[in-house]
Amino acid sequence: MNITTLLLTVVSTTLVYSAPMIFTALGGTFSERSGIVNVGLEGIMVMGAFSSVVFNLFTADIFGAATPWFGLLAGGLVGVLFSLMHAVATINWRTDHIISGTVLNLMAPALGVYLTKLIFAGKGQTDIIKQPLANVTIPGLSDIPFIGPIFFRNTSLVAYLGVFVAIFAWWVLKYTRFGLRLRSVGEHPEAADSVGISVYKYRYMGVMLSGLLGGIGGAIMAESITLNFSVSTIVGQGFMSLAAMIFGKWNPIGAMGAAIFFGFAQSLAIIGKYIPVIANIPNVWFTLAPYLITIIVLVAFIGKSQAPAADGSTFVKSR
């Protein structure tokens, strides 16, 4: 395997594995910037993965090659609905944010498998989807010498979409009225409230955005990597996205960069055996690598990142 092919494999596999976590980490950023801790991202991803697979299986004949993209939307919408449970519990009903997020994580696999068994006559996992999110070669860009073949040939389009969404999210949070208000309710809800900003409204929007993006993230995972839904479709990617968000200092661009790094860690299990220096390491270490790297990164960078000031607290409007 020559160097270009090796780099092509490394880059495209990394992007495939980063895409779900880019979207989910961005979702987490919106939620936490509004002051709601969301450890339920894992559960939101599970519901997104489930609904996109079901949508894909049932509508592949109608939408053809566009099915997986509609599937992402389906996953996102179900993610929004599912995240409302977290929103109402933490914003209105004063539930501890970690407990409520954990309920999402408990509920999602149970509900997903329950519905799978209901829809597919008792089977605990779905069939393989017929229309996956396939890798594409971007015309024009792929003709650039050296860089073109590595970055734009047979690559993950949805990961590039994620990069654009991250830049857009950064712009939204930094420069728009919506972003400023969202951040203000996460930093100092009383001050925001005193100038007439509805803390509840913006926190709902933050959590629902995390549901949308987390659902899309789960849908990408299912439609480009596992290609079906079962209880082991999402195995810790939601929590890794959360770690990516912390590693990225609650900044969309940073979260995206961290998600790509974690994507690389996950892709080691696939590409490790092609990289000459580490090819002889037993496979189990590659499986463990993303989890161990997450811990190391978290420990190494935790002191340098600062959560939004009101993150994890419940705001009660005084009368």
Binding site: V39, I98, V235, G236, F239, M240, L242, A243, I246, P282, V284, T287, L288, Y291, L292, T294, I295, L298, V299, I302, G303
Partner: peptide, 26 residues
């Protein structure tokens, strides 16, 4: 890790779960 580095136990314990699962299986 929590006591000396302030690393959130919610994430470290979940990651250690998966490490335990795959390591035990191996």
């Amino acid at each position: 890790l929590r006591a000396y580095f302030g690393a959130s136990e919610v994430i470290t314990t979940i990651m250690l779960n998966y490490v335990a699962l795959y390591a035990t299986n191996a």
